[in-house]
């Protein structure tokens, strides 16, 4: 591990990985946030973990949406026309 022995962080890595979403969602209590940030400052493994999690979110946002098929678009217009006639 990379922590110097005298500055042992109060939040262990196993807790960090469970609270990291609360951290990203900005929903940690002030003390927990400080404990987490203190740990993060000292632990390169958890820094890497956080970086990977952020990368995961970015990549999920790059999944492309399927375009609406022409057939579906036509059906929706039929739905609309029928609705307008019913009114």
């Amino acid at each position: 591990m990379t922590h110097p022995p005298h500055s042992r962080p109060e939040m262990p890595c196993a807790e960090f990985v469970e609270r990291v979403t609360d951290y990203l969602e900005d929903s940690l209590q002030v003390d927990d946030r400080a404990r987490l940030e203190e740990h993060l400052g000292e632990c390169t493994a958890c820094q890497l973990y956080l970086g990977q999690l952020r990368q995961t979110l970015t990549l999920a946002g790059q999944l492309v949406q399927d375009d609406v098929s022409p057939a579906m678009h036509d059906e929706l217009l039929t739905v609309f026309t029928r609705w307008r006639q019913e009114r």
């Binding site: 591990m1 922590h3 022995p5 042992r8 262990p12 890595c13 196993a14 807790e15 990985v17 469970e18 990291v20 632990c43 493994a45 958890c46 890497l48 973990y49 990977q52 990368q55």
Partner: peptide, 27 residues
């Protein structure tokens, strides 16, 4: 658990309880 528990050191580890035993690997 977000990460398999075996990847962390045990609670009774003399120096680093609950710290990474098998840290995340670089992608």
């Amino acid at each position: 658990t977000a990460v398999e528990p075996e990847r962390f050191l045990p609670a009774d580890h003399d120096r680093w309880p609950h710290h990474w035993a098998a840290p995340p690997r670089r992608w």
